[in-house]
Design a binder for these strands. Sequence first.
DNA 1: TTATTATGTCTACAATGTAGACAAAATGGA
DNA 2: TCCATTTTGTCTACATTGTAGACATAATAA
Lengths: 113, 113
Amino acid sequence: MESLGQFEQIVLTAILALEGNAYGVTIHAKVEELSRPKKATRGAVYATLDRMEDKGLISSWLSEPTKERGGRSRRHYRIEKFGEKALRDSARTAQRLVETIAQNLGGLAWKPR
Amino acid sequence: MESLGQFEQIVLTAILALEGNAYGVTIHAKVEELSRPKKATRGAVYATLDRMEDKGLISSWLSEPTKERGGRSRRHYRIEKFGEKALRDSARTAQRLVETIAQNLGGLAWKPR
DNA sequence: TTATTATGTCTACAATGTAGACAAAATGGA
DNA sequence: TCCATTTTGTCTACATTGTAGACATAATAA
């Protein structure tokens, strides 16, 4: 019953949100968006992607190079069933925490959107 | 701009939820409740409490022994302002994740109370 | 060709997470 | 009295996750 680390959860969520356009650079950008105002380095993202691939949470493949300035082939990632389940589970716990915190600490003042 | 680890977040939330009755045993129980079905050992909880006290997120003091069978003095914990802020911040990020996951993965099947 | 952009790999370390043995205080019952 | 039991806490050692940044490579424009 492994469970996701915090950063793993964020990276996985980023891949999910990118629907089919998930590779190093876009994932890194989405991770920073999700964890704002905290920064993340590319190294951190790639290391986590590697580990998650080893564990079978995600899989990857190389695409053809693009035509943009400097564009070269990219390693794309997608979530496996196993990763989806892990993410779902971790989201339940996260939700439980958020509710408990909101109840006890009062308005978090986030606007849902 | 330190940010809370996953387990730190859970332990902090447990202290919060226990309002004034937070010490090793009750915290451990609440942590397991919050992270169900995952288990946690007492060692993990205490190690995390120590680290968070070092960082000034929480503080602790010893209470008088109680009259129950085997009851001895307990180390009670409470959250400091700094810890409260850290928890609030981490809750915002968690909420952002949960929303993103729910949007992309569909019903998490939690009832928001 | 070389500078520049986009992309990815690697290494090494710091921080966090975890298990489980051990210790000690209190007290009820032999 | 003193020992077994309950409650509580400490400690050690290690595994996993998180992070920074240097380095490498491919493509192309100039």
